[in-house]
Design a protein around this nucleic acid. Structure first.
Ligand SMILES: NC(=O)c1ccc[n+]([C@@H]2O[C@H](COP(=O)([O-])OP(=O)(O)OC[C@H]3O[C@@H](n4cnc5c(N)ncnc54)[C@H](O)[C@@H]3O)[C@@H](O)[C@H]2O)c1
Ligand SMILES: NC(=O)c1ccc[n+]([C@@H]2O[C@H](COP(=O)([O-])OP(=O)(O)OC[C@H]3O[C@@H](n4cnc5c(N)ncnc54)[C@H](O)[C@@H]3O)[C@@H](O)[C@H]2O)c1
Lengths: 219, 219
DNA sequence: CTTTAATAAAGAATTTATTCTTTATTTGTT
DNA sequence: AACAAATAAAGAATAAATTCTTTATTAAAG
């Protein structure tokens, strides 16, 4: 029978779900290391302090199937999550601005599966050129233009100081970059169609502070 | 007239709103630097690429009042946001694990108003003890216990490696810490009432990758 | 072989957040 | 002084996300 609109399958996971998936993945890798073969949504929910039906619904978006009385196969689940998040394809990225945060991210990508691979970093600081952090070489910024011509990199991680962000972002677009993971506070002004993923850790601080104040008022 | 339930004032901003507030604050500080005295929600919306009525609703939670045909007074608005987010009170924090990310955060707090002040960092690595990063002294981890007895610090930023996270978190609770800003991937298991703010940058990567894939399919 | 308990999956209801609409206020203009 | 335009604010409608409920499937126990 033909699929009607109402019952169309394979709807895209909503953003809140998508943001939870990396958390499941890390957790499941730990579970796998413990030699556990099957795991149920109620168990996941308990360990991650979240609603078990939400776990079921979240995981269902990846297409994985669980079995009643058994749960999910841990390997299948990990594979399904990685597949869904696009970790199996190669997602190469440049990093611009190898300072405090940039260096941290280069170190981080080694241990943690972010789903993308930083293949080169660029900086204008002569002292940093030539360094290797987390397996990533730091190159002179001007090399960005020639290198991007040869490689087909679509993603850039922007960790320059705020005042350089807009200008660097424009350069990146000229180099064929389609998506910018923006860690600066600047609201980049770029052509239609360019993906800008703003990333504000200040948001988390705001939530933390309120929760703390709320708790304090109940004492 | 007495306030009925339906019209109760001062309802707490929902979390999505709260997470947007730091973005407004940074933007408005730039606006202020440009010498602009008043700003309207439509202008903010255009600059930040978001819905102007959402801007109005978000800002209303801080208690600020705007004027038709004029907009908001930039100074008032900044003050109101800072007040609402608790930036005026002293929010002292310890940082545990002065590695790549910890160092980046120490450098960051100087320039950016996160609403909290890191007053000391702790590490077990002898090479790091004594260093000063972003105005923060790095102390021997064991000093945490004596120091927390004298000071009344409620917040800790956890940036140790994953495998140390649970143990360190337990130490922190014993030192009187009430809220942990957790940057590790570990799902901490702590007593009721302790606030744990998990912070996953992997979530942003997941969203970025999907947006890029979605865009790619439309070519 | 039947029954029972656990659980995934699907669907409904509720809650929450965003967007749209209307109203009222304020300033500048004629 | 009356009028027009811009805009904040309040309210209504829509959309989205979460939580609750029911159903059906499976494996284990009797
Ligand atoms: N440090 C953090 O924890 C943190 C957290 C969130 C966001 N941020 C933001 O990330 C950005 C970087 O922060 P940071 O602490 O790493 O700063 P940083 O000064 O340590 O690093 C910036 C790097 O960019 C390089 N750079 C400057 N101009 C450049 C240009 N035109 N082209 C290429 N490289 C250039 C500098 O040489 C430096 O190495 C800032 O916008 C900051 O607000 C930082
Ligand atoms: N680097 C990043 O960009 C990034 C981003 C997000 C999350 N994280 C997470 O943040 C954590 C830290 O990452 P990092 O890259 O800074 O690692 P890192 O190894 O550079 O830093 C960890 C620091 O903690 C110290 N440490 C180890 N055990 C300790 C203990 N018991 N008590 C006190 N200090 C101790 C180490 O000496 C080191 O200085 C990890 O869990 C990582 O997954 C990192």
């Amino acid at each position: 029978m033909e699929e009607t609109g109402k019952y169309k399958k394979g709807r895209q996971a909503p953003e809140p779900t998508l943001k939870r998936l990396p958390g499941y993945l890390y957790y499941l890798e730990q579970v796998r290391e413990d030699g556990i073969l099957n795991i149920s949504a109620p168990t996941i929910g308990k360990d991650l302090s979240c609603d078990p039906t939400q776990v079921v619904k979240d995981l269902a978006f990846t297409g994985v199937k669980g079995k009643p009385r058994v749960g999910y196969n841990v390997y299948e689940l990990i594979h399904s999550l990685e597949e869904y998040m696009g970790h199996n394809q190669v997602n190469e990225a440049f990093l611009i601005g190898a300072g405090n945060l940039g260096s941290a991210l280069m170190a981080y990508q080694q241990e943690q599966a972010l789903g993308l691979r930083i293949i080169a970093a660029f900086d204008i600081d002569k002292k940093k050129i030539g360094e290797n952090i987390g397996g990533v070489h730091i190159l002179e910024y001007s090399k960005l233009f020639s290198l991007s011509g040869r490689l087909n990199v679509k993603i850039a991680i922007l960790t320059t100081p705020n005042q350089a962000a807009q200008e660097v972002a424009e350069d990146l677009i000229n180099c064929g970059i389609k998506a910018i993971w923006n860690f600066t506070s600047v609201n980049l002004n770029l052509p239609e169609g360019i993906i800008v993923q703003n990333t504000s850790i200040g948001s988390y601080a705001a939530v933390l502070l309120r929760r703390l104040n709320d708790a304090g008022n109940n004492l």
